[in-house]
Protein backbone atom coordinates (compact mmCIF):
# COMPACT_ATOMS: atom_id res chain seq x y z
CA UNK A 1 0.00 0.00 0.00
CA UNK A 2 2.65 2.49 1.01
CA UNK A 3 4.62 2.10 -2.28
CA UNK A 4 1.46 2.77 -4.28
CA UNK A 5 0.71 5.88 -2.25
CA UNK A 6 4.28 7.06 -2.65
CA UNK A 7 4.19 6.75 -6.44
CA UNK A 8 0.84 8.46 -6.68
CA UNK A 9 2.00 11.16 -4.31
CA UNK A 10 5.14 11.84 -6.36
CA UNK A 11 3.17 12.06 -9.58
CA UNK A 12 0.60 14.34 -7.96
CA UNK A 13 3.36 16.59 -6.67
CA UNK A 14 4.84 16.74 -10.17
CA UNK A 15 1.46 17.72 -11.62
CA UNK A 16 1.13 20.44 -9.00
CA UNK A 17 4.68 21.61 -9.69
CA UNK A 18 3.68 22.11 -13.31
CA UNK A 19 1.24 24.78 -12.19
CA UNK A 20 3.19 26.30 -9.34
CA UNK A 21 6.83 26.53 -10.30
CA UNK A 22 8.32 29.77 -11.66
CA UNK A 23 9.41 29.74 -15.30
CA UNK A 24 13.02 28.72 -14.81
CA UNK A 25 12.43 25.84 -12.41
CA UNK A 26 9.48 24.75 -14.54
CA UNK A 27 11.68 24.40 -17.62
CA UNK A 28 14.39 22.70 -15.65
CA UNK A 29 11.97 20.15 -14.21
CA UNK A 30 10.77 19.29 -17.71
CA UNK A 31 14.35 18.47 -18.66
CA UNK A 32 14.84 16.51 -15.44
CA UNK A 33 11.76 14.39 -16.13
CA UNK A 34 13.06 13.40 -19.56
CA UNK A 35 16.53 12.65 -18.22
CA UNK A 36 14.88 10.63 -15.44
CA UNK A 37 13.29 8.43 -18.10
CA UNK A 38 16.78 7.85 -19.50
CA UNK A 39 17.97 7.04 -15.97
CA UNK A 40 15.06 4.65 -15.39
CA UNK A 41 16.10 2.81 -18.53
CA UNK A 42 19.62 2.63 -17.20
CA UNK A 43 18.29 1.48 -13.85
CA UNK A 44 16.56 -1.48 -15.49
CA UNK A 45 19.88 -2.68 -16.88
CA UNK A 46 22.22 -1.68 -14.07
CA UNK A 47 20.09 -1.32 -10.95
CA UNK A 48 17.90 -4.39 -11.40
CA UNK A 49 19.80 -6.70 -13.74
CA UNK A 50 23.33 -5.80 -12.67
CA UNK A 51 24.56 -4.90 -16.16
CA UNK A 52 26.99 -1.98 -15.82
CA UNK A 53 27.00 -0.45 -19.30
CA UNK A 54 29.16 2.53 -20.22
CA UNK A 55 27.53 2.94 -23.62
CA UNK A 56 23.96 4.04 -23.03
CA UNK A 57 24.57 7.33 -24.81
CA UNK A 58 24.32 5.19 -27.95
CA UNK A 59 20.67 4.30 -27.31
CA UNK A 60 19.73 7.78 -26.13
CA UNK A 61 21.35 9.43 -29.13
CA UNK A 62 20.02 6.80 -31.56
CA UNK A 63 16.50 7.58 -30.40
CA UNK A 64 17.10 11.29 -30.69
CA UNK A 65 18.69 11.00 -34.15
CA UNK A 66 16.01 8.69 -35.55
CA UNK A 67 13.24 11.05 -34.47
CA UNK A 68 15.13 14.17 -35.49
CA UNK A 69 16.18 12.91 -38.91
CA UNK A 70 12.69 11.57 -39.64
CA UNK A 71 11.18 14.95 -38.77
CA UNK A 72 13.83 16.73 -40.81
CA UNK A 73 12.65 14.69 -43.77
CA UNK A 74 9.03 15.59 -43.21
CA UNK A 75 7.63 12.87 -40.95
CA UNK A 76 5.14 14.08 -38.32
CA UNK A 77 6.24 14.16 -34.69
CA UNK A 78 4.10 11.20 -33.58
CA UNK A 79 5.42 8.57 -35.99
CA UNK A 80 8.91 10.04 -35.65
CA UNK A 81 8.73 9.48 -31.91
CA UNK A 82 7.79 5.83 -32.45
CA UNK A 83 10.78 5.53 -34.73
CA UNK A 84 12.94 6.89 -31.92
CA UNK A 85 11.66 4.23 -29.50
CA UNK A 86 12.37 1.56 -32.10
CA UNK A 87 15.89 2.87 -32.69
CA UNK A 88 16.71 2.80 -28.98
CA UNK A 89 15.38 -0.75 -28.64
CA UNK A 90 17.08 -2.01 -31.78
CA UNK A 91 20.52 -0.61 -30.93
CA UNK A 92 20.28 -2.08 -27.44
CA UNK A 93 19.35 -5.50 -28.78
CA UNK A 94 21.99 -5.52 -31.48
CA UNK A 95 24.83 -4.44 -29.22
CA UNK A 96 23.44 -6.62 -26.45
CA UNK A 97 23.60 -9.76 -28.63
CA UNK A 98 27.35 -9.26 -28.83
CA UNK A 99 28.17 -7.52 -25.57
CA UNK A 100 26.30 -10.05 -23.42
CA UNK A 101 28.89 -12.65 -24.34
CA UNK A 102 31.10 -10.71 -21.92
CA UNK A 103 30.65 -9.68 -18.32
CA UNK A 104 32.01 -7.25 -15.77
CA UNK A 105 34.72 -4.90 -16.93
CA UNK A 106 34.77 -6.35 -20.44
CA UNK A 107 31.06 -5.61 -20.74
CA UNK A 108 31.73 -2.02 -19.70
CA UNK A 109 34.44 -1.61 -22.30
CA UNK A 110 32.56 -3.33 -25.12
CA UNK A 111 29.48 -1.15 -24.60
CA UNK A 112 31.72 1.90 -24.41
CA UNK A 113 33.42 0.99 -27.70
CA UNK A 114 30.10 0.48 -29.47
CA UNK A 115 28.95 3.89 -28.30
CA UNK A 116 32.24 5.44 -29.41
CA UNK A 117 31.95 3.84 -32.85
CA UNK A 118 28.39 5.12 -33.15
CA UNK A 119 29.42 8.65 -32.21
CA UNK A 120 32.22 8.63 -34.78
CA UNK A 121 29.80 7.31 -37.38
CA UNK A 122 27.49 10.24 -36.74
CA UNK A 123 30.42 12.58 -37.33
CA UNK A 124 31.64 10.69 -40.40
CA UNK A 125 28.25 10.95 -42.08
CA UNK A 126 27.92 14.55 -40.96
CA UNK A 127 26.33 15.60 -44.24
CA UNK A 128 23.32 13.49 -43.33
CA UNK A 129 23.31 13.63 -39.54
CA UNK A 130 24.40 17.23 -39.04
CA UNK A 131 27.68 16.00 -37.56
CA UNK A 132 29.05 17.72 -34.49
CA UNK A 133 26.98 20.85 -35.07
CA UNK A 134 23.67 19.03 -35.07
CA UNK A 135 20.53 20.70 -36.31
CA UNK A 136 17.47 22.45 -34.92
CA UNK A 137 14.06 20.88 -35.43
CA UNK A 138 11.60 23.14 -37.25
CA UNK A 139 9.26 24.69 -34.66
CA UNK A 140 6.22 24.19 -36.86
CA UNK A 141 6.73 20.43 -36.88
CA UNK A 142 7.03 20.13 -33.11
CA UNK A 143 3.38 19.31 -32.45
CA UNK A 144 2.06 16.20 -30.72
CA UNK A 145 -1.65 15.41 -30.23
CA UNK A 146 -2.36 19.03 -31.18
CA UNK A 147 -0.02 20.34 -28.48
CA UNK A 148 2.49 23.01 -29.43
CA UNK A 149 5.72 21.71 -27.90
CA UNK A 150 7.53 25.02 -28.26
CA UNK A 151 5.34 26.28 -25.39
CA UNK A 152 6.31 25.67 -21.78
CA UNK A 153 2.96 24.21 -20.62
CA UNK A 154 2.50 21.51 -23.26
CA UNK A 155 6.19 20.67 -23.09
CA UNK A 156 5.93 20.00 -19.38
CA UNK A 157 2.76 17.99 -19.85
CA UNK A 158 4.36 15.71 -22.44
CA UNK A 159 7.51 15.28 -20.36
CA UNK A 160 5.43 14.39 -17.31
CA UNK A 161 3.21 11.99 -19.26
CA UNK A 162 6.26 10.18 -20.59
CA UNK A 163 7.81 10.04 -17.15
CA UNK A 164 4.59 8.80 -15.51
CA UNK A 165 4.18 6.06 -18.10
CA UNK A 166 7.80 5.05 -17.63
CA UNK A 167 7.59 5.07 -13.85
CA UNK A 168 4.40 3.02 -13.62
CA UNK A 169 5.60 0.54 -16.23
CA UNK A 170 8.89 0.17 -14.38
CA UNK A 171 7.10 -0.39 -11.11
CA UNK A 172 4.81 -3.02 -12.58
CA UNK A 173 7.73 -4.63 -14.33
CA UNK A 174 9.96 -5.07 -11.30
CA UNK A 175 7.08 -6.61 -9.35
CA UNK A 176 6.36 -9.07 -12.13
CA UNK A 177 7.78 -12.57 -12.56
CA UNK A 178 10.12 -11.23 -15.25
CA UNK A 179 11.28 -8.47 -12.92
CA UNK A 180 12.19 -11.07 -10.30
CA UNK A 181 14.20 -12.99 -12.88
CA UNK A 182 16.08 -9.78 -13.71
CA UNK A 183 16.95 -9.28 -10.06
CA UNK A 184 17.98 -12.91 -9.85
CA UNK A 185 20.58 -12.21 -12.58
CA UNK A 186 22.02 -9.44 -10.47
CA UNK A 187 22.05 -11.40 -7.24
CA UNK A 188 23.28 -14.77 -8.41
CA UNK A 189 23.37 -15.75 -12.04
CA UNK A 190 24.45 -19.35 -11.45
CA UNK A 191 21.69 -20.02 -8.98
CA UNK A 192 19.03 -18.55 -11.23
CA UNK A 193 20.30 -20.73 -14.07
CA UNK A 194 19.75 -23.77 -11.91
CA UNK A 195 16.28 -22.51 -11.12
CA UNK A 196 15.51 -22.71 -14.82
CA UNK A 197 16.01 -19.13 -15.99
CA UNK A 198 17.89 -18.49 -19.20
CA UNK A 199 20.37 -15.75 -18.23
CA UNK A 200 21.11 -14.69 -21.79
CA UNK A 201 17.51 -14.08 -22.87
CA UNK A 202 16.62 -12.47 -19.56
CA UNK A 203 19.51 -10.07 -19.80
CA UNK A 204 18.89 -9.37 -23.47
CA UNK A 205 15.25 -8.57 -22.76
CA UNK A 206 16.28 -6.30 -19.90
CA UNK A 207 18.72 -4.51 -22.18
CA UNK A 208 16.08 -4.13 -24.88
CA UNK A 209 13.69 -2.54 -22.38
CA UNK A 210 16.51 -0.35 -21.16
CA UNK A 211 17.17 0.72 -24.74
CA UNK A 212 13.48 1.42 -25.25
CA UNK A 213 13.46 3.82 -22.30
CA UNK A 214 16.72 5.44 -23.39
CA UNK A 215 15.54 5.85 -26.97
CA UNK A 216 12.25 7.32 -25.77
CA UNK A 217 14.10 9.80 -23.60
CA UNK A 218 16.44 10.83 -26.42
CA UNK A 219 13.60 11.19 -28.90
CA UNK A 220 11.55 13.22 -26.45
CA UNK A 221 14.48 15.41 -25.55
CA UNK A 222 15.04 16.37 -29.17
CA UNK A 223 11.37 16.91 -29.78
CA UNK A 224 10.72 18.97 -26.67
CA UNK A 225 13.80 21.18 -26.76
CA UNK A 226 14.18 21.49 -30.50
CA UNK A 227 17.76 20.41 -31.07
CA UNK A 228 19.37 17.18 -32.21
CA UNK A 229 23.12 16.66 -32.22
CA UNK A 230 25.95 14.16 -32.00
CA UNK A 231 27.15 15.73 -28.75
CA UNK A 232 24.42 13.70 -27.03
CA UNK A 233 26.28 10.58 -28.14
CA UNK A 234 29.55 11.39 -26.36
CA UNK A 235 30.72 9.30 -23.43
CA UNK A 236 29.60 12.03 -21.05
CA UNK A 237 26.01 11.02 -21.77
CA UNK A 238 26.84 7.41 -20.90
CA UNK A 239 28.24 8.47 -17.54
CA UNK A 240 25.28 10.72 -16.67
CA UNK A 241 22.58 8.04 -16.20
CA UNK A 242 25.04 5.98 -14.18
CA UNK A 243 25.57 8.94 -11.87
CA UNK A 244 21.84 9.65 -11.62
CA UNK A 245 21.09 6.07 -10.68
CA UNK A 246 23.93 5.76 -8.21
CA UNK A 247 23.02 9.06 -6.59
CA UNK A 248 19.33 8.29 -6.27
CA UNK A 249 19.74 4.64 -5.46
CA UNK A 250 20.28 1.74 -7.86
CA UNK A 251 17.40 -0.73 -7.94
CA UNK A 252 14.86 1.71 -6.51
CA UNK A 253 11.95 2.92 -8.61
CA UNK A 254 12.25 6.58 -7.68
CA UNK A 255 16.04 6.73 -7.47
CA UNK A 256 16.47 7.77 -11.11
CA UNK A 257 14.20 10.80 -10.68
CA UNK A 258 15.82 11.82 -7.43
CA UNK A 259 19.31 11.41 -8.88
CA UNK A 260 18.54 13.29 -12.09
CA UNK A 261 16.92 16.10 -10.14
CA UNK A 262 19.66 16.46 -7.56
CA UNK A 263 22.39 16.31 -10.15
CA UNK A 264 20.73 18.96 -12.31
CA UNK A 265 20.22 21.19 -9.31
CA UNK A 266 23.80 20.64 -8.22
CA UNK A 267 25.31 21.47 -11.60
CA UNK A 268 23.10 24.53 -11.85
CA UNK A 269 23.97 25.80 -8.41
CA UNK A 270 27.66 25.02 -8.87
CA UNK A 271 27.91 26.98 -12.10
CA UNK A 272 26.27 30.01 -10.48
CA UNK A 273 28.01 30.05 -7.15
CA UNK A 274 31.55 29.09 -8.00
CA UNK A 275 34.11 29.14 -10.74
CA UNK A 276 34.72 25.46 -10.13
CA UNK A 277 31.61 23.52 -11.10
CA UNK A 278 33.57 20.34 -11.80
CA UNK A 279 34.99 20.29 -8.29
CA UNK A 280 31.54 20.53 -6.74
CA UNK A 281 30.36 17.52 -8.73
CA UNK A 282 33.50 15.60 -7.87
CA UNK A 283 33.23 16.28 -4.16
CA UNK A 284 29.55 15.36 -4.13
CA UNK A 285 30.24 12.02 -5.77
CA UNK A 286 32.99 11.22 -3.31
CA UNK A 287 30.95 12.25 -0.26
CA UNK A 288 28.05 10.24 -1.57
CA UNK A 289 30.00 7.10 -2.17
CA UNK A 290 31.63 7.35 1.26
CA UNK A 291 28.51 8.01 3.27
CA UNK A 292 25.63 6.68 1.18
CA UNK A 293 27.13 4.04 -1.11
CA UNK A 294 23.74 2.62 -2.06
CA UNK A 295 22.48 5.99 -3.15
CA UNK A 296 20.01 8.08 -1.22
CA UNK A 297 16.95 5.87 -1.47
CA UNK A 298 19.01 2.69 -1.20
CA UNK A 299 20.51 3.94 2.05
CA UNK A 300 17.11 4.99 3.40
CA UNK A 301 15.79 1.55 2.56
CA UNK A 302 18.71 -0.03 4.43
CA UNK A 303 18.28 2.28 7.43
CA UNK A 304 14.70 1.35 8.19
CA UNK A 305 12.34 2.27 5.36
CA UNK A 306 12.29 -1.33 4.19
CA UNK A 307 9.11 -0.85 2.20
CA UNK A 308 10.69 1.66 -0.20
CA UNK A 309 10.04 0.38 -3.72
Amino acid sequence: MRPALLHIGVLAALVAAGFLLPAYQHGMLARILVMAVFAMGYNLAFGYTGLLSLGHALHFCAGMMATGLAMRHGLAAGPALILGLAAGTATAMLTGLLALRTAGVSFMIVTLMFAQAFHLTLLYYGGFTGGDEGFPLPSAARRLFGLDLTQAGPRYAVALALFAAGLLAQWALVRSRFGRSMIAMRENEERSRMLGYNPFTTKLAALALSGLYSGAAGAAYGLLFGYVGASFGTSQYSILPLLYVLLGGAGTTLGPLLGAGLMAWLIDAASSLTDSPLAVIGITLIVLVLFAPKGILGTLREKGLKWLP
Binding site: E133, G134, P136, L137, S139, F225, G226, Y227, G229, S231
Partner: peptide, 14 residues
Amino acid sequence: FSHVVIGSAPRAAE
Protein backbone atom coordinates in the same frame (compact mmCIF):
# COMPACT_ATOMS: atom_id res chain seq x y z
CA PHE B 1 31.33 27.06 -30.47
CA SER B 2 28.91 26.21 -33.28
CA HIS B 3 27.17 23.28 -31.62
CA VAL B 4 26.42 25.43 -28.58
CA VAL B 5 24.97 28.16 -30.81
CA ILE B 6 22.83 25.78 -32.84
CA GLY B 7 21.69 23.92 -29.73
CA SER B 8 20.77 27.11 -27.84
CA ALA B 9 19.23 29.19 -30.64
CA PRO B 10 15.86 27.34 -30.67
CA ARG B 11 15.36 28.09 -26.97
CA ALA B 12 16.30 31.75 -27.47
CA ALA B 13 13.62 32.00 -30.15
CA GLU B 14 11.01 30.30 -27.95
